[in-house]
């Protein structure tokens, strides 16, 4: 067996996860459809007055993104846990938190990035000004990445227990993301300075990424003992 260096291991892990997702359409389609369905329900439930929709749009988009990233968490570790891939990762003698960062990133590419596309439909649904699209996208990229890491932690801690427990764990921690994300989008819609929110979100991502992936590794180790 030829020896692989760390970079190629990480790359192969990413490749494997993306390939599995590519062959299983539901893995990237369900979060997308879920996001759109939740978006549709807000105007139906609260009212479809245009100026009112404009006001609730950021909150709605962010809550929908939060819920669909929570829903998607089950596919992150459960399959790997059931078929033994997770054990292989643990005995691979590689820095486990790096493997987890790669896994979360591939999971984000599968379930988070379709939401970015769907949020463009949200822009049409809620009649948002085109000037706010850039902020919405950047804040969603940063925010859904943070949410992916948080929900990976929740999913690892509640491995094999279902999404509702992991939602209870993750939701309190995702409040800063929700506040910053809606504030950034709101500011962009009202055409006031928004960059500080994006900086905060970016800072949070780089705080959360190493710490939560270490905690996720520990949680997986607890649950797969």
């Amino acid at each position: 067996m030829n020896k692989l260096n760390l970079t190629s291991i990480l790359f192969r892990l990413l490749q494997k996860d993306l390939l599995i997702a590519y062959r299983k359409t539901s893995s990237y389609l369900t979060p997308l459809i879920f996001f759109l369905v939740v978006l549709t329900f807000f105007p139906l439930a609260i009212g479809s007055d245009s100026s009112f929709l404009n006001r609730i749009a950021p909150g709605t988009l962010w809550i929908a993104a939060l819920l669909s990233s929570l829903l998607a968490v089950e596919s992150l570790f459960n399959e790997d846990f059931n078929d033994g891939t997770l054990d292989q990762l643990f005995i691979s003698n590689q820095p486990i938190f790096l493997l987890i960062i790669v896994k979360v990133f591939s999971h984000w590419m599968i379930t988070g990035s379709p939401i970015l596309l769907a949020s463009m439909i949200g822009v049409i649904f809620f009649d948002l000004p085109t000037s706010s699209i850039f902020t919405l996208l950047v804040s969603l990229i940063l925010g859904t990445l943070i949410l992916s890491f948080l929900s990976a932690f929740g999913g690892a801690l509640s491995l094999g227990k279902g999404a509702i427990l992991s939602a209870i764990i993750v939701l309190p921690f995702s409040i800063p993301v929700l506040l910053l994300g809606t504030a950034a989008t709101n500011a962009a819609i009202q055409e006031i300075e928004y960059s500080s929110y994006l900086f905060f979100l970016g800072a949070m991502l780089f705080i959360v990424m190493p710490f939560i992936s270490i905690a996720t590794a520990e949680a997986l180790r607890i649950n797969s003992d």
């Binding site: 764990i169 921690f173 949070m204």
Partner: peptide
């Protein structure tokens, strides 16, 4: 583990 993560996230929240 959750209480450790919680205590470090609470200041941010």
């Amino acid at each position: 583990l959750l209480s450790l993560v919680g205590v470090s996230m609470i200041p941010i929240i």
